[in-house]
Design a protein around this nucleic acid. Structure first.
Length: 197
DNA sequence: GTTGCGATGCGCT
DNA sequence: GCGCATCGCAACA
């Protein structure tokens, strides 16, 4: 029985090694980030409830999907008790079933890159904005927790501005399928300003 | 292996 | 209007 209603910082590492399945394609999760809505300037829910983030305020074990950068979908698993708008961003994983279908959705990518990155993972699994709010207990999307992963690394989250550094990114140590982005690069505009000053 | 940059559209102010 | 919880590709080392 999927129960993720504990504190998000305790639930996040439990998602490592879990399997997220959508139809014929399944991904073993290797990298996640925790977002603690109430106290977290990096969270979509930090400024209160909106139509978009309403799912985060609901029960744990549901999927929160959002659209970003004009072309990408990312997905989170809602954690914590009802009313606590916390979620865990699924950043990366390895495809463990439905390899051919995943490859066809990610033409040109190497197997290692199929689900390496939050938007890529959603594409490999064909998770769309319309899957927002899905209950992960009953499908068509399902989440199955695995055995606890012992070797977990932590570090700062990726790509956030306006949030203090908090080591709320978790990944399976040594996994090559974790995303390789540099943390929080400054804005292009800022870089230009630096050059000019 | 790294770095730079354009694409693109929804949600919020 | 503006700002993104980004990606993919080209160019370079």
């Amino acid at each position: 029985m999927l129960d993720l209603s504990g504190p998000v910082l305790e639930e996040a590492p439990r998602l490592l090694g879990a399997v997220l399945r959508h139809g014929d394609v399944a991904v073993r999760i290797t990298e996640v980030e925790a977002y603690d809505g109430a106290n977290d300037p990096g969270s979509h829910s930090y400024r209160g409830r909106t139509k978009r983030n309403a799912v985060m305020f609901g029960p744990a074990g549901h999927l929160y999907c959002y659209f970003t950068y004009g072309m990408h979908v990312c997905c989170n698993v809602v954690c914590g008790p009802v009313g606590t708008p916390s979620a865990v961003l699924i950043r990366a994983g390895e495809v463990v079933d439905g390899l051919d279908l995943a490859r066809s959705r990610r033409a040109g990518a190497s197997d290692r890159d199929l689900a390496r990155g939050p938007a890529r993972l959603c594409r490999a699994l064909d998770v769309q904005l319309s899957d927002n709010g899905t209950d992960l207990r009953s499908g068509p999307l399902t989440l199955t927790l695995g055995d606890r992963v012992d070797d977990v690394s932590t570090g700062p989250r990726v790509g956030l501005r306006g949030a203090p550094d908090r080591p709320w990114r978790f990944w399976i140590t040594g996994e090559r399928s974790v995303s390789a982005y540099r943390p929080a690069a400054p804005l292009k505009r800022d870089r230009r300003a630096d050059l000019g000053s």
